[in-house]
């Protein structure tokens, strides 16, 4: 049996017949159409694309921390807040990083990405369902009973307004499904969702689980809906081309 690592290389076949001229003309026409902001964003080096998306997540988090920080910050144990913020930020950034990274061809990555998506969900739910960090009123009972929906809706709006621009930017920077294994596409809404939850964790002092589920984790619903709509439109456009 052969034990060599090196495979005989195939020599390139010169295109003497000109049979590829039409195809090359089509490609040149495609490249000519690659103009405008969207095309420039897609063509950015991946390190820069990742830096922009991560920068936007951190910008939103920083703005909310600076302008409207949670009012129970002095009661919340530092270590726990840091841990929760670090977990949300790290998962959000890593989702964006993987989503926007260059092309990889490896079906073995698919189970890994499925595991990562599950991990994102588990960490987010763990933060939501952990016992309250402190037992001080009014934070403990706020946003419950008749105030459940108004408070949850307010947080949902804040989280969504932070998550959707991130999702929009990520999708503008994206070069399309041809460059990724299928499940990787799910990392776009996951990253945006966790970015939205990060903002809420910095801003909202309400500790009730029902509020956290509806108002914080619930950001996933509008983010997923918008993502599914955009993906559907993108797919329909690709199929029509």
């Amino acid at each position: 049996m052969s034990t060599t690592d090196d495979h005989p290389q195939t020599e390139p076949r010169p295109d003497a017949s000109g049979e590829f001229d039409d195809l090359f003309a089509r490609i040149e026409a495609d490249i000519e159409r690659e103009r405008g902001l969207a095309a420039r964003l897609r063509a950015l080096p991946r390190w820069l694309a990742i830096a922009l998306a991560v920068g936007l997540i951190l910008l939103f988090a920083g703005l909310w921390l600076w302008l409207w920080p949670r009012s129970d910050m002095h009661l919340y144990p530092d270590w726990r807040l840091l841990l929760e913020l670090a977990a949300l930020a790290a998962l959000s950034i890593s989702a964006v990083h993987t989503f926007l990274s260059g092309p990889r061809l490896c079906p073995t990555h698919e189970p890994l990405i499925a595991l990562r998506l599950l991990g994102h969900l588990i960490v987010a739910l763990a933060i939501v369902f952990m016992p309250p960090a402190h037992l001080t009123e009014p934070y403990l009972s706020a946003g419950t009973g008749s105030m459940l929906w108004p408070c949850a809706t307010a947080c949902l709006s804040i989280g969504t307004s932070a998550a959707l621009p991130v999702l929009g930017l990520i999708l503008l920077l994206d070069r399309g499904s041809a460059m990724q294994v299928p499940l990787t596409r799910m990392l776009a809404p996951a990253g945006a969702w966790l970015g939205g939850m990060l903002v809420l964790q910095l801003h909202c002092p309400i500790l009730a689980h029902e509020h956290q589920v509806l108002g914080h984790a619930g950001v996933l619903v509008p983010v997923l809906a918008v993502w599914a709509l955009i993906e559907g439109l993108r797919r329909a456009r690709n199929e029509s081309v």
């Binding site: 490609i27 495609d30 490249i31 690659e34 092309p103 460059m179």
Partner: peptide, 18 residues
């Protein structure tokens, strides 16, 4: 096959900075 080839070279163009 030629459509896919066209897409490949378009993606190469988009990813050239990488």
């Amino acid at each position: 096959a030629d459509d896919l080839l066209q897409q490949t070279f378009l993606q190469l163009h988009r990813a050239r900075a990488d």
